[in-house]
Design a protein around this nucleic acid. Structure first.
Lengths: 231, 231
DNA sequence: CGCGGCTTTGATGTTCATCAAGTAAAGTGG
DNA sequence: CCACTTTACTTGATGAACATCAAAGCCGCG
């Protein structure tokens, strides 16, 4: 939590350069007025599936999952949203109602901006629109590419992928606390909870990782990369 | 082929309402000048993976596959592009070079417009930009949703899906000619060629479909829908 | 303290890819 | 037009990968 710094004004926000660099001071001031910065505890729902999309949600700290109810028991996790990315935006204009839920999987912070404000900036500011289109294109490409690759991998390859993802894309460290349950990993990479556990245990026995509850330490990164690529 | 009608000018084009309804007469005239309408034979490559994306490709007739080399032998088909849809656009701005190839799987017609023209319209015309963003959002949502559902299905469910897709989304008829080989079906829905054939044969034996080479006739649509949903 | 959810391990069976082998169809060169 | 090669299609047999079922320990929470 302590790494989260409160940006008082959008103009000083470290994320401004990512999203709003093309807005004029005037346009930025409007965003400023209508934005809310909200804090979510781990487990909190940020947006519920089926709810009307009235706001654009932009994660500025923490971690969230994007997911969808499949049935009573099962949930499909589409992806993990991290600060700086636009996964949320990709789906903002796909319909009146959200097809996905957004749930904080770590204590998180998000800027909430009415969709109308974003829309009017798209309509009035071509550079902003262009930037959004590029972001969407890249985001969609990445999700789709990752998913196709993942589905070709065997279970060991998928687990290797998710470990590398958390370690080096999210936490940038060999040791990290899994922000998700074994069940959620299963929902994210399309396998059963039992097999997630089984393969984590195998990796531990093979001295590739150490496990202490939610804490994972990657011991042999090179092998993990190989398993991810080949498996 | 004979169902393809030559639209002489964009302003009369049946597709204008879909893409360019928000352009002024002036803007439309510019598109007019720089656009090319090309004809592709079944099997022709429309755009190659790795090539610089200099043009926006819009299918106005026929059918194309969007695919990606995985290795020497295997190819991953991401989806089938039909006239009126924006699958191509979704990836147009994801990078300098195309991550996918576009190949005609039927004799096809496409309008080719320099990316610069599209870009300048996004920059200058907010409504056009907004429309593009909405299209991208819907397209991404649909692809992702379909893929996740497909990957949960058993092989029989996937074949049922693809049969229903060709019959009722593409050809709108119980009887149709498969525009793709068994191998391509396998590449599209992530299974082996052998199993595609095996399950098609099973469906034939179960009197759900009739097969005569590339010609498929759906006899029992209701059961096929059930297999698709449950399997 | 007991209940439900999460985690773990083992045993079992199903689904599916792989391998093999043969037929049909389609394109190629003389 | 016919031999020839290649590519697409088809069926069967086998084994590997994986889901499912079962049972038990663990932990947090009311």
């Amino acid at each position: 939590m302590d790494q989260i710094v409160q940006p008082l004004y959008c103009i000083n926000c470290p994320y401004k350069s990512v999203i709003f660099s093309d807005l004029s001071d005037d346009e930025l001031a409007k965003v400023e007025q209508s934005k809310q910065e909200l804090f979510f505890r781990k487990g909190d729902t940020i947006l519920s599936e089926g709810e009307e999309v009235k706001q654009f949600i932009y994660l500025t700290g923490g971690l969230a999952k994007i997911h969808k109810r499949e049935s009573e028991k099962s949930d499909q996790i589409i992806g993990i949203s991290i600060p700086f990315d636009f996964i949320g935006f990709l789906f903002t204009f796909s319909g009146e109602k959200s097809n996905y839920s957004y749930t904080a999987i770590e204590d998180s912070r998000a800027c909430i901006i009415p969709v109308g404000i974003i829309k009017s900036n798209i309509l009035k500011n071509g550079s902003f629109a262009m930037k959004m289109i590029e972001s969407m294109s890249k985001t969609a490409d990445k999700i789709i590419d990752t998913r196709f690759k993942l589905n070709k991998k065997h279970l060991r390859g998928r687990i290797a992928y998710i470990l590398l993802f958390f370690a080096y894309e999210i936490y940038k460290n060999d040791r990290f606390n899994l922000p998700v349950s074994r069940k959620e990993i299963a929902e994210l990479i399309n396998m059963t909870t039992e097999n997630v556990i089984r393969i984590l245990s195998e990796f531990r026995q093979d001295k590739i990782i150490e496990i202490d509850g939610k804490t994972i330490t990657i011991i042999n990164k090179e092998i993990l990369i190989k398993i991810c690529e080949l498996g």
